[in-house]
């Protein structure tokens, strides 16, 4: 089984309850198709770098799950058909994943905590960069 990560942006005016209902629906879809959801992480409401469908903000959610290709196609089908979803992206995180070990690791490393926009940059900006590049 592979580990996938799907991030999607939901319409900003959708109520928090509706968002969590939608997330739950995706969670059950993963389970139904023989996958395992590690974490549905709320990334919060963020402003977009450019408008999508005339919206300047969006609610981000990140799903981290294991499964095979059918899970991904099913999830993406749901996201595509929902008009409240502005954008989504799925990436492969691991080619081979030990489901139980990874589930433990996610909890141990605190990856299930909500991710907010307030994370400070770990990498310091090198002062020479900007000048040379321009």
């Amino acid at each position: 089984m592979r580990e996938y990560e799907t991030v999607y942006i939901i319409h900003p005016e959708l109520a928090a309850q509706q968002v969590s209902d939608f997330n739950e629906r995706l969670g059950t879809t993963i389970a139904k198709n023989g996958g395992r959801l590690f974490v549905a992480r709320d990334m919060g409401k963020r402003s977009l770098a450019y408008p999508i469908q005339k919206q300047t903000k969006g609610t981000y959610t990140c799903l981290d799950y294991a499964g095979d290709g059918t899970v991904v196609s099913e999830i993406e089908r749901l996201l595509r058909f929902d008009e409240q979803v502005l954008r989504f992206l799925t990436v492969v995180k691991n080619e081979k994943v030990d489901v139980e070990a990874r589930a433990q690791e996610v909890i141990a490393r605190g990856e299930d905590k909500p991710l907010t926009a307030s994370v400070e940059p770990v990498v310091a900006v090198s002062d020479t960069h900007e000048k040379e590049a321009v």
Binding site: V7, A49, V122, S126, H129, A133
Partner: peptide, 25 residues
């Protein structure tokens, strides 16, 4: 991590272009 747009900023110019490796090192 692509989810942390802010952490990628040191590798972009002010205009949002990717800085080449000869400069970023």
């Amino acid at each position: 991590d692509f989810k942390e747009g802010r952490l990628l900023q040191p590798f972009l110019t002010e205009r949002g272009r990717i800085i080449p490796r000869r400069i970023s090192g």
